[in-house]
Design a protein around this nucleic acid. Sequence first.
DNA 1: CGGTCTACCTGAAAGC
DNA 2: TGCTTTCAGGTAGACC
Length: 269
Amino acid sequence: MPELPEVEVSRLGITPHMLGETIKSIRIHQPQLRWRVPDEVMLAEHQVICEITRRSKYLIITTAVGSIILHLGMSGNLRVIDNSVPLKKHDHIEIELENGKVLRLNDPRRFGACLWQNPNEQHATFAKLGPEPLTDDFDVEYLYEKSRNRKTAIKQFLMDNAIVVGVGNIYANESLFKAGINPKREAGKISKKRYQLLVPIVKQTLSDAITQGGTTLKDFAQTDGKPGYFAQQLLVYGRKGEPCVTCNTQLTEIRQGQRSTVYCKKCQK
DNA sequence: CGGTCTACCTGAAAGC
DNA sequence: TGCTTTCAGGTAGACC
């Protein structure tokens, strides 16, 4: 489920509870996630959390001896709650703090991950990633140049982590609708003028979702509910057959690379 | 290299 | 009602 905004909101949500705190213990209830959780993760026990950052959709919890990297996959979520709260089904990893709180990773489908990164090293999984969409490294010039001679559809191009990270299925759909671009259009055949429209829209769409999530999700430490999910105003995603907000035409659904694409045939050319 | 497809998993929803 | 099928917000790795 989580795309970049959800991961960023999770980071914002857990940080005040965890930053500067000492890890009392780490418990791995289900080591078989996307990859087997490495034993080195246990090195973080009794260490102080000095930084919580994000790269792409990965959360990086840093201590003096190394960093625990968490990914939420398709179905993961994080909660910081009192250690006395009973475990739920699919609570795979717990990072218990000296302050009585515990971070729990719950992930039914287990497409998520927990990795270990040594100090001053970069985990291999970060090596091939493109720029962060909300930084200046992701700009019109960059995306336009990258797109030249690319035959792939613009939607799949946008979702390619080697091009730009953090644009998942929902926000690719939404951004292309707002930019009026047909998702099937070849990335290499789209004019610079249209990329000038698209790039700021991608940034705005993501940052709006973060803002919205941040305000919706004030209660990260609650014991029930589902932190990390927030109601969003989606213009096309999940609205197949419903009227386009602009022209009332019924929205069309197609499949691109086994993922669902919803768009307006009239507004997106 | 670029493009395409598969695999990993559970559970909710849709189909019959 | 209950069984079966489909689909889900991600992404590495295999293949051509």
